[in-house]
């Protein structure tokens, strides 16, 4: 088996992705998501926005998934939380549908992104192995994993690049 790659060789720079401060609203994040990824031909996957604080520390990440979840009307959020089991009947779904593009979603749009982002709690060193990064990402369902070197946010590892790397290992083994 050939030597495993390090995170450093796989990671991509942080400036490939949009940056916003935590006090931006969901509305502003939507606008940025749209301009940077959807309307832009150079868009790279996954669609992630980095959320920073005033001291320029990474606080979290935001993908379309978190944005849409942030716009979900409150009625349904409570049901899911209290019931433990996800049970959606036609009525509550209809409510959600009606609420999404109406007044409630418009109000929810004004919430800060810090309330809906995925908080950045897990980091990896550029010297760690690709496998370690893969384990962290699958266990925590992350689409990107921040790479930290000397307390500085230097890049991210993307799931697709990990997949590519691991697939090479597997296929070449055969």
């Amino acid at each position: 088996m050939r030597e495993e790659k390090k995170v450093r060789e796989l990671m991509v720079g942080v400036f490939n992705y949009p940056h916003i401060p935590y006090w931006f609203t969901i509305r502003q994040a939507i606008a940025i998501m749209k301009k940077s990824f959807i309307d832009n031909e150079k868009a790279i996957f996954p669609h992630v926005i980095f959320v920073f604080n005033e001291k320029y520390d990474l606080l979290g990440t935001l993908t379309p998934y978190e944005i849409i979840r942030g716009l979900e009307p409150k009625i349904k959020q409570f049901q899911v939380k209290d019931a433990e089991v996800v049970y959606i009947d036609e009525n509550s779904l209809a409510e959600v549908e009606a609420g999404l593009f109406l007044s409630e979603a418009k109000n929810l749009c004004e919430r800060p992104v810090s309330e809906v982002m995925v908080p950045a709690k897990l980091f990896i060193s550029p010297n760690a192995t690709v496998t370690k990064a893969a384990f962290l990402m699958i266990h925590h369902k992350l689409s990107v994993l921040p790479v930290i070197e000397n307390n500085k946010f230097v890049g991210v590892v993307k799931m697709m690049d990990l997949f590519n790397e691991i697939s090479k290992l597997i296929i070449e083994e055969e």
Binding site: H19, I20, P21, Q28, A31, F52, N53, E54, Y56
Partner: peptide
Amino acid sequence: LAKTVIMPTE
């Protein structure tokens, strides 16, 4: 109070 990188708003 703040020194960070952002995307430009309109």
